[in-house]
Amino acid sequence: MTDLSKSGEPERARPEAIKAVPVRHPGRWVATVVLLVLAAMFVHMLVTNKAFDWSFIVDNAFRPNIVEGVRTTVLLTVFAMVIGILLGAVLAVMRLSPNPLVSGTSWLYTWFFRAAPRLVLAILFGNMAILYAKVEFGLPFDAQLADLLGVDIDGTLFSINTRTFLTGFMAGLLALALSEAAYMAEIVRAGIMSVDPGQSEAAAALGMSRLRIMRRVVLPQAMRVIIPPTGNETIAMLKDTSLVAFVPVTNELFFRLQAVGNRTFHPFPMLVAAVGWYVAITSVLLVGQYFIERHFARGAAGQGDARQRGRLRVRGIGFGGGGGGAS
């Protein structure tokens, strides 16, 4: 039976390549025409409608104070995401810890900061100076203990005035970063759980420590699952930075653009400029995401040729059937 494919082949002539009439798609042509007409109408509207006032937009969208706003917005996005991702990763690892106290703490954090609206957080952090005039770092309950023992001790190691520490920028950044960490914790946790437990097991069998297994084996593989939603989060964060106007932070992009619009009585063109700026920055971020994704796709089945992928899939099914009792 197996001879059929192997030895029979060279004797027979190769059949001529198929030349068939392709299926026609009249619907596609109609759709194309409709879309082209709509696009033309849209462009026409953009150019002719006075409300857009393109020359005004171009003149004002690149003023120095607007560019400073772009800088603040980008910095806020980057810092908030970096803190959010790092804290989120720590929270995710804590959540998966066998210690119920550790995982419970992580759960509580995630619960609270996902429930609290970012806008409210921003306003709250902006007003933190009213609640706490000073932030002190030192021994816990030192004043109470001193009272109790009747001695004079000061457990404060250092203290800072809340107003100098929690500038508008810091308050806004903190609100965004802490909130982001809660979302990132869930994303990282999903990523970690997507990695085959056999990977940690093989690494443990090689004598690797738990931390090292996480860092060298699990997280690099989890990255492929973590990155796309993180890209989403980053883009959402870019736009959420406009919430810090309520802290208030006044040197952020959207606030600056609106200020120009209000001052010149041309608010609408400045809104268009805002859309333009956010689209531009998002596009740059997407390029970054592309390269990061490519980096972490190393060794993935998709990188190999199609034949390999097919074989992998078949093997995967084999495991599904046979792996019932195996551990």
Binding site: D196, G198, Q199, E201, A202, A203, A204, A205, L206, G207, M208, S209, R210, V217, P220, Q221, F296, R298, G299, A300, F319, G323, A326
Partner: peptide, 26 residues
């Protein structure tokens, strides 16, 4: 401790049914 367990495991090599190679490494 975890560290001591890891040290013990270094004396033992294990080969699994499903290979469990690290896919992101050559």
């Amino acid at each position: 401790r975890d560290r001591e367990v890891s040290a013990q495991r270094r004396e033992i090599g294990m080969v699994f049914q499903r290979f469990n190679l690290f896919p992101h490494m050559t």
